[in-house]
Computed example of a mutant assay.
Amino acid sequence: MIQTIDLKKGMVFNRGNKLFKVLQINHHKPGKGNTLMQMDIQNVKTGAIVHTTMRPSEKVDQVTVDKRNAQYLYDEGDAAVFMDLENYNQYTLTHDQLGDDRNYLEENMKLTLNFVNGNIIGIELPTTVEMTVAHTEPMIKGATIDGGGKPATMDTGLVVNVPAFIKTGDKLIINTTDASYKSRA
């Protein structure tokens, strides 16, 4: 058993005989009253995302997650295919199961597969990935590096706010935890 205040993004817990993965978690202290834990959790089986609140002292059953090194191979319809690098088994996850993580997937990318009781439940991305800018507006004359930035669409469809000097075709380092621009590659 673990208290909800100890939950972190990516952890898996059992609640009502259903497995949930923590997507986002915030401590919320209203003006009056006790602190609450606001969470976005995903049902591992159905992929449904639920916004919920819990008391910090509430207890849930933490589930042990087995992690295996893997490689993203390709998309097949509305699913993505991964290969376990140890035994070369292939696994498929639907785009709904992947959620926003699918926007970071590039062919041959190395990542981690998460399993519970031998069943695949999701992936763990590296902290940063290298992506190519598919489209962005040209630099505006007189714009500075410290300017507000502009949107850039990556080759996977992910939209990231980047500095004004970035142009189409540039390779960038993107943070996967908050979809932010880190640097040029």
Rank of each mutant, 00 (worst) to 15 (best):
M1K: 02
M1W: 10
I5R: 07
I5N: 03
G10D: 03
G16A: 04
N17T: 12
N17V: 14
L19V: 05
F20E: 04
K21W: 03
V22S: 02
H27K: 13
H28N: 12
G31Y: 15
T35Y: 04
L36Q: 15
L36R: 14
L36D: 12
M37A: 09
M37R: 12
I41A: 02
Q42I: 09
Q42N: 10
N43S: 04
G47S: 00
G47N: 00
G47H: 00
A48D: 15
I49P: 00
I49V: 14
I49Y: 02
I49A: 00
V50M: 13
V50G: 04
V50L: 15
M54A: 13
R55N: 14
P56H: 03
P56D: 08
P56V: 09
S57D: 13
S57A: 10
E58K: 10
K59Y: 08
V60C: 01
D61L: 05
Q62H: 14
V65D: 01
V65W: 03
V65P: 02
D66N: 06
K67M: 10
A70I: 08
A70C: 11
Y72N: 03
Y72V: 09
Y72A: 02
L73H: 09
Y74C: 15
Y74Q: 15
D75P: 10
D75Q: 14
D75R: 15
D78V: 12
A79V: 13
A80T: 04
V81W: 00
F82H: 05
M83S: 11
M83G: 07
D84N: 11
D84W: 00
L85I: 12
E86I: 13
Q90W: 05
Q90P: 10
T92H: 06
L93Q: 02
H95Y: 13
H95W: 11
Q97D: 13
Q97V: 11
L98W: 01
L98P: 02
L98G: 01
G99N: 01
D100L: 12
D100R: 12
D101R: 01
D101K: 06
R102F: 05
E106I: 10
E106W: 01
K110G: 08
L111G: 07
F115N: 10
I121H: 01
E124Y: 03
L125E: 07
P126T: 11
T127W: 05
E130P: 10
M131Q: 06
M131S: 00
T132I: 02
A134L: 13
A134P: 09
T136G: 00
T136M: 00
E137F: 07
E137Q: 14
P138N: 09
M139C: 14
I140R: 04
I140A: 08
K141F: 07
A143S: 15
D146E: 14
G147W: 03
G148W: 12
G148F: 08
G148S: 15
K150S: 04
P151A: 03
P151K: 03
P151C: 00
A152C: 05
A152N: 04
T153V: 14
T153E: 13
M154L: 08
D155A: 13
D155C: 13
T156F: 00
G157Y: 05
A164W: 06
T168V: 01
D170S: 07
D170G: 02
I173E: 06
T176E: 01
T177K: 07
T177P: 08
T177D: 06
D178K: 07
D178I: 07
Y181I: 08
A185M: 06
A185H: 10
